[in-house]
Simulated scan of single mutants.
Amino acid sequence: MSSVTGGPPLGAEAAATVDPSVTDVIREAIIRGEYAPNQRLIEADLSAAFSASRATVRTALLELAGEGLVERLPNRGSRVRAISVDEAIEILEVRIGVEGLCAAKTAARLSDEDAAALADLRTRMIESVAEGDLVEYSRLHLSLDVRLRELSHHATASEVLARLHAQSVRHQFKLSSRPQRAKVSVLEHAAIIDAVVARNPDAAELAVRRHLLSVIDALREVSAAEAGPASAG
């Protein structure tokens, strides 16, 4: 059996076997921390785990490498790319402008039907935190991020955000799994939805900015707290 990088080049036939669901499942596993930073991703193991062909898995890993979640190593296959807190903060700083733009665009053109759907999402997010279901809350706020990109109808911003979000969301997922942080975060997300539903582009952009700056502050606090015991030793 050939090694991960020793097989034939990915041609049109292999590319045609791509299964978006495999890419999505591996992406979510990385985001949730099921695959640790720098962990090797063995094609044969992934193929068996997801009942997918090696070509499909290889294509999924190439796509995730393009998103910055996976690192391809010469003659050594693939591994989960380690994204430092500092890099995640830089990504969040870039997201402030682009994500704020999407929220403003969405607020300016929101339909009544989409407004009702966002209001329902707001309710479910608040309920999930109140019930302590932080996994569901994380899923819902990821859905909100995607929906705001879609409703903005801004193709360039959406493409940029999809890539940036995938790289920084693993750190955000760790934050949202902390009950106290989730209680703060859900109110920030509710404020974003309220501004968008009110069709107020300036308020929507400001709400996004406040939320992402809050995420940056929280990441710095957690990073400092985690580094404290190590540096003390």
Score class of each variant (00 low, 15 high):
Arg147Glu: 07
His171Met: 04
Ala119His: 07
Thr123Met: 12
Leu175Val: 01
Gln167Thr: 01
Val169Asp: 09
Gly132Lys: 03
Lys183Thr: 04
Glu136Gly: 06
Thr123Ala: 15
Leu134Ser: 02
Ser128Thr: 02
Ala157Tyr: 00
Ala119Gly: 09
Val186Leu: 08
Leu175Met: 04
Thr156Tyr: 09
Ala130Cys: 06
Ala157Gly: 05
Leu121Ala: 06
Ile126Thr: 13
Ala119Asn: 10
Glu131Phe: 10
Arg149Asn: 11
Ala191Asn: 08
Leu118Phe: 02
Glu159Ile: 05
Tyr137Leu: 11
Glu127Arg: 08
Glu127Ile: 04
Leu187Gly: 02
Arg170Lys: 03
Leu187Cys: 01
Gln180Gly: 11
Leu134Met: 00
Ser185Tyr: 06
Ser152Gly: 05
Glu131Gly: 10
Ser185Phe: 01
Val160Ala: 11
Val146Pro: 00
His171Pro: 01
Arg139Asn: 06
Leu121His: 00
Leu121Met: 04
Ala157Met: 07
Val146Arg: 14
Leu148His: 04
Ala166Tyr: 06
Glu131Asn: 15
Arg139Tyr: 10
Arg122Gly: 07
Gln172Tyr: 04
Gly132Thr: 00
Tyr137Asn: 09
Phe173Arg: 15
Gly132Pro: 05
Ser128Pro: 03
Leu151Ile: 05
Ser176Ile: 09
Gly132Glu: 00
Leu187Pro: 02
Ala155Gly: 01
Gln167Val: 08
Glu127Thr: 03
Leu121Ile: 01
Leu142Tyr: 12
Leu118Thr: 05
Glu127Asn: 10
His165Gly: 11
Phe173Thr: 15
Val135Glu: 15
Ala190Thr: 03
Val146Met: 12
Arg139Trp: 07
Glu127Pro: 00
Asp133Pro: 01
Gly132Trp: 06
Asp120Ser: 14
Val160His: 05
Gln167His: 02
Ala166Lys: 13
Leu144Tyr: 05
Thr123Gly: 12
Val135Ile: 12
Pro179Cys: 08
Val186Lys: 05
Phe173Leu: 13
Gln172Gly: 10
Thr156His: 09
Arg149Asp: 12
Leu148Glu: 01
Gln172Asp: 07
Asp133Gly: 07
Arg181Trp: 15
Val129Pro: 05
Val129Trp: 02
Arg147Leu: 11
Leu187Thr: 01
Lys174Glu: 15
Ser138Thr: 13
Glu188Ser: 07
Ser176Trp: 14
Val169Cys: 06
Ala182Pro: 00
His165Ile: 00
Ile126Asp: 12
Val135Tyr: 11
Lys183Gly: 09
Leu118Glu: 02
Ser176Asn: 15
Lys174Gln: 15
Leu151Arg: 06
Leu187Met: 04
Lys183Trp: 05
Ser143Trp: 10
Asp133Lys: 08
Ala119Val: 09
Glu159His: 09
Ser177Gln: 13
Val135Ala: 15
Arg178Pro: 08
Leu187Glu: 01
Val186Trp: 03
Glu150Gly: 08
Val129Ile: 02
Val129Thr: 07
Glu150Leu: 13
Ser168Thr: 04
